[in-house]
Amino acid sequence: MNCEKCKKRVATVHLTEIIGDEKREVDLCVECAAEQGLAVQPPGGMELLAKLINQQIGEELSAMAGMRCPSCGHTFLAFRTQGRLGCPRDYEAFEKGLGPLLERMHGSVEHVGKVPPSAGEEARRIGELNRLRRELRHAVDQEDFERAGLLRDQIRQREHSGGS
């Protein structure tokens, strides 16, 4: 939509005037609005900062879009457009892009549920550790320090058994 006054620049100031019973909508560009004495904030520090951030995010995004899974050939861009991943290895290949997404979706990037029998001893140990760490955080939040102490000991014991 172009400015009603100069008819050249894009209208970014949208005004609703009410005079008596009459309501009127006015669309102006920043310059013409300023001429009419309407207070419009000129681009200030915050706006510049936002611009810089957007630029940086833009660069990161385009780098991510180019990510390709070495195993199946699926790209991160293809995932973003279809919403489906190409193979289980994508989770590693796209870790940089998927991490924040998982965090937003699930509020976590750490599995604490079932570990299948086929996953082996090590996966079960890690699963158990994740579960205990989460319980520890919960106990600390609840200020249940006695339980937190017990959990900490259990975690140490299991961390140790993994190293030997």
């Binding site: 989770y91 998982l102 079932k114 299948p116 996953a119 699963g127």
Partner: peptide
């Protein structure tokens, strides 16, 4: 799930859990 998983291993990661085609299901897949 255990019975099927015994016959053929599932795609599973110890950090992310069961790996699914859409990340909205990853983890428990439940």
């Amino acid at each position: 799930d255990d019975q099927i998983g015994e016959r053929h291993p599932y795609a599973f990661s110890s950090t992310l859990g069961f790996l699914t085609a859409c990340p909205t299901n990853v983890g428990t897949g439940i």
